[in-house]
């Protein structure tokens, strides 16, 4: 009996060791980027055997990215594009998600299939014809066009997600509002949306992060430095023959900052959303 108990404790200990090791494996690449970005000299960055901690942490890589390069501009562009796309995706998602959740109409299943199909098609399959279309209408090199494209990219997700959130709210709320004389639109604005805040926040953050990360459309449709987003900027650095890894690491870390902040805030919703959808089938 005692041996069994010891055995169990040992097993538990092993479990925690494995979990801790796995956590380290997951975190390490990020830490490594941070360490590299803080190393001041080329000699230190390219030393082999590798130095695991910077001798004197230095911000020189960040400074040269921001002041010598145009990274500040890229960051601003990325922020505008992602913020706009997140906002638009939420507005469109609220409108359509509400309708799909609350009203009966023909073609509802066809509509859901319409969204599903867009999710299965890789973006880069439509890049050539999209490029032709945009260049014909002089829509290349515009951050607003990028925001529109990202909104479009996020619509199916935000409609389906927000519809799920609407489904979770009892319709008696707005029915009461209708009886009190609210129009459909007013009931939606004044009664439903305030209750939906967590769902809307989660959708916004998801759309923001996805737009923040998007690469292939951005490198196709933007080539002027003034309009580049962060992934396009990093792409320019990585295509060079000799990559400056110190600056590259600094750029990567800066690109990660908003993601970390938003993720810390929305991680719970994202996990719930992901698992709820598929566990229920």
């Amino acid at each position: 009996m005692k041996a069994k108990k010891v055995n169990k404790a040992l097993l538990r200990l092993m479990k925690y060791i494995v979990l801790a090791a796995f956590l380290l494996v997951v975190i390490f690449p990020f830490l490594w980027m941070l360490v590299t970005s803080l190393k001041g000299s080329q000699a230190e960055i390219y030393a082999f055997p590798v130095q695991y901690l910077p001798k004197e942490p230095s911000m020189i890589n960040y400074e040269s990215m921001l002041w010598k390069g145009n990274f500040g501009q890229y960051m601003r562009n990325s922020l505008i594009v992602s913020f706009a796309a997140g906002l638009f995706a939420c507005v469109v998602g609220i409108c359509s998600g509400y309708i799909i959740s609350r009203f009966k109409f023909r073609f509802k299943n066809a509509l859901l299939l319409f969204y599903l199909v867009t999710q299965m098609i890789p973006t880069f399959i439509m890049l050539p014809s999209l490029y032709q279309m945009l260049s014909k209408h002089h829509m290349l090199n515009s951050i607003w066009v990028m925001a529109l494209l990202y909104t479009n990219m996020m619509i199916p997700f935000s409609v389906v997600t927000l519809r799920g959130f609407f489904d979770g709210i009892s319709s008696s709320l707005e029915e009461a509002a209708w009886i009190d004389g609210c129009s459909y639109g007013m009931a939606l604005r004044k009664v439903i949306i305030p209750v939906m805040k967590p769902g809307i926040a989660a959708t916004f953050i998801f759309a923001f992060i996805n737009s923040w990360n998007e690469l292939f459309m951005a490198i196709m449709f933007i080539d002027k430095d003034k309009y580049k987003t962060i992934p396009v900027g990093l792409n320019g650095l990585i295509l060079k023959y000799d990559i400056k890894w110190g600056e590259m690491a600094a750029g990567t870390v800066m690109a990660l900052i908003p993601t970390i902040l938003l993720f810390a805030f929305a991680q719970k919703y994202m996990i719930e959303g992901l698992t709820a959808g598929s566990v229920k089938g």
Partner: peptide, 24 residues
């Protein structure tokens, strides 16, 4: 918190993940 931490890479683009591994 553990689940949140190990889930974090999911929020990062494959492109940036690739850059990190290229350096490693």
């Amino acid at each position: 918190i553990y689940q949140g931490l190990i889930f974090f890479p999911w929020a990062v683009s494959g492109f940036v993940i690739g850059i990190m591994w290229r350096w490693m």
